[in-house]
Design a protein around this nucleic acid. Sequence first.
RNA 1: GCUCCCGUAGUGUAGUCCGGCCAAUCAUUUUGGCUUCUCGAGCCAAACACUCGGGUUCAAAUCCCGACGGGAGCACCA
Length: 480
Amino acid sequence: MPEYFEEKEEEEIDRLPEIEGEDIVMRMAPYPSGPLHIGNSRMVILNDEYVKRNDGKLVLFYDDTIGSEKKKPLIEAFDLIKEGLEWLGVEWHETYYKSERMEIYYEYGQKIIEMGDAYVCECSAKGLRKNREKGIECEHRSRSVDENLEKWEKMLDGEFDEGEVTVRLKTDMQYPDPAFRDRVLFRVSNQEHPRVGDEYHVWPLLEFSWAIDDHLLGMTHILRGKDLVMEDKMEEYIWDLFGWEKCEFLHYGMLRLRNVRLSKSEFQQQIKEGKLRGWDDPRTWSLQSLKRRGIQPEAIRDFILDFGMSKTDIEVPASKLYAKNREIIDEKANRYFFVKDPVEIELVGDLDIDEAEIPRHPDFSDRGNRKIKVDRKLFISKKDWNENEGKEVRLKNLCNIKLEGHKGYVTDLANKDILKIQWLPDGEKCSVEKPDGSYDEGIVETNIEEVELNDLVQFERYGFVKILENSQWKVSYGHR
RNA sequence: GCUCCCGUAGUGUAGUCCGGCCAAUCAUUUUGGCUUCUCGAGCCAAACACUCGGGUUCAAAUCCCGACGGGAGCACCA
């Protein structure tokens, strides 16, 4: 094989602002409710990229607190996430689980209560919200430290039910930003956790667990989306309370794919209901599904890095990702004829060719030719047939015909500048899995047998596909 | 409603911190042309932008003020 892997470097590297400091430590914190998808890949790739450029350390920290009714951690997700990271070429040095560090959170929770900076609150969720909106302090706020500690012990002993009680940070109920008024630090949950079962009833919320862990693990830089900017303030507030050193925050804006809605909890549900085939269903946009479609991890990295670190919210069409992928795979993918929804036509007139020879790749003659047998009866796609009634078209690499009904009158052999269509005398049945979950059916030339499982090929005038099964041919569609 | 963030071509992005070299970068997109027996790829060319209004200044995409537009947070989710 020739050297496809030339340096593609360019200069786009400069889209990321430099970061300061030595011995950089960063972390990525996926919530394990499903595999990483294209949206999550931004967080992951930016972290990886920064760490690699600065020769730092990257921590994988499963953010597997108990979540909510709607958003549950999923046991398979831990491995799916890892698999996705490895595929993307992300390198990390240590792995942690929130669920294994509960005692640490309790310890600091106790401390913060002892310091008088947090209190046990027995407001209902509704009441809490209302007070927060109006800036009203509830009666629990003024409890003594001893009383708080007593309640805290009871919480840990499981004497409260879900929703009955929380531990709240004592910031200021008049704080101008209502989002920052006495946020909840711990709450009660009796749900079963996929890793630690029902061992704990009291769970920290992310702002608290992060404030503790980011300090304990010595994070120097924290990268997060704009949706989590408030966590900066929360963490800093808590660090100040403990007198800890602060670290640097970096933010990026929200990224959306046009016409794509990504929700792992919804996908989780749809998979359960059988509406999606599984976590590699193309509609989930999971890394697994993109791999299945023949999207290259390098393409995803390029795609993400193109956006840099801007705080602007962006909405990009998926075609941008496909453009990146095409750049990489066009030269790798050999060409084959695929006839979708075959329609039979009969060739009429002089034609004395038994076999057509067509290069495997138009740009690489060293890959040789493939041969397709010629018959009087040929199949062309229904679409080409419909659209060219009465017109002259060229059967690519064979001859020109005038289409009339189910007959093709051979006009001549010269390579004319007219529409060239794919044709086949017969072929292997082939089913194409489309990104929207539907399937295209058709036939593919028998030469396809020379390719290996998981190879990427291009079906001419149709698109790039990846070979999923090669006994009964099944492929998945990547893009045009 | 309150708090915060953002606003450069169709879509993204560089430049904004440290005003002049920005009649504004690059990619993608679109349109032409060339090439190729794919509506793919390649090559060449063209098209298209500093949200608006004030101010500061010899000079503003860059600084200040205001308006408008978009987004996020205000969950006992992450």
